[in-house]
């Protein structure tokens, strides 16, 4: 069990690094938002791994908070980032 969990943790760490690379490169704000969303999901997975490793239930509320935080974060960025992007942004609904 422990070996499997450490393997999973390694994969999640690699995934987080790749997502950070996309967040740094991402040409527009929305690319970064998507990467952040996936990063939140990876964070939830990592916390779940920790809970499974030590069999404690104290981190479960954090999972709930992270779920809702990721949702609110990406919706608000998508809602308010229109027209303020850093590549040529021609707003189709003038």
């Amino acid at each position: 069990m422990t070996v499997v969990l450490y393997l999973c943790a390694g994969m999640l760490g690699l995934a987080a690094l790749l997502l950070l690379a996309r967040m740094t490169m991402g040409p527009t704000m929305l690319d970064r938002t998507v990467a952040l969303d996936v990063l939140t999901a990876v964070g939830i997975c990592a916390l779940a791994l920790e809970a499974a490793l030590h069999r404690n239930t104290t981190t479960l509320p954090i999972l709930l908070v992270l779920t809702l935080l990721g949702f609110v974060g990406s919706v608000s960025i998508a809602r308010f980032s229109r027209g303020s992007d850093d590549i040529e942004a021609e707003d189709s609904e003038s």
Partner: peptide
């Protein structure tokens, strides 16, 4: 699940 997360990260990149 972790494999799927890794594949998703590769896809995003």
């Amino acid at each position: 699940g972790a494999t799927l997360a890794l594949i998703a990260a590769i896809g995003v990149l």
